[in-house]
Amino acid sequence: MQSGSDNTEMLVRYLLGQLSEEERHKLEEEYLGNETLHEELLAVETELMDAHSRGDLSLEEQRHILGRSSKQNVRQRMLFSEALRRRISHPPREARAVASASQFISNALNALYQRRWFALAAFATFALLIVGVAQIGRRVALDKSLVQGTTRRATPEVQPLRPVPPTLSLILLPGQRSAGHGNKLMLPQVERIVRIQIVLEEAGHYPGYEAALKAVDQPFSQTFKALSIQVGTKGERELVVECPSGKFRPGDYAVSVYGTRHGSRQEIAGYFFRVEIP
């Protein structure tokens, strides 16, 4: 018996009752004497259980897989499999927020490593965000205390705070690959961080991704390396890059997305957008 994934086909056939008597005996002798192969067998069985949970097995295959465990064991495993599947397809909101925050910090650290000015801008934005959140928190507390009627006489002097978004968002959707109305970035008068969400139609599977932002008729280009796919609230797959608004001038910009593997890169998507001054 070979080691590694070469065993998979044989193990699947064993579990689905498709081996000859001779092959079956041989495999049983091997896993009885080989702890690792035994674990691989159990792992493949688990994957087949998952396939059953997704409704991917035929009735005959189900009979083989489910008939080997007690009813209670099957119920437990199916429940676990279903829970795991749901959790992965719908992560809890807090986990998504933590993931976004970690991604933001990771991007900022990455930028710190690559470009000092960008890191300073990111840090400033982050600080602004914290101040903004603190102010919103104060406002919420104030509203709450107003509702409860416990506000002291002095507090009404506090002016309502209008939360200022520290970032501008630009969402580049697949299919909107010309600089039409949908892909327009209006430059703010005060510098902000521009957060560009690049929604991918076909991301493929690469260990890493890059995005190159280039002005069409100006000497400006910026490459964002070591990006990873993020899953949006509706399950869309996207890359997120950020750039200070001060780097942009009115005009057309192109974004090229690449998948990277073993030092080589392949272009997988392209977008355009236009920058204007209001």
Binding site: L66, G67, R75, F80, A83
Partner: peptide, 27 residues
Amino acid sequence: EPQQRPGPDAGDSAKLDHALGCLDRCL
């Protein structure tokens, strides 16, 4: 008689919710 085994209790969403809570804690 074929040994048909039941799948998960699809209707029992409370059990699944509970399992999800447990899974989050265990993760």
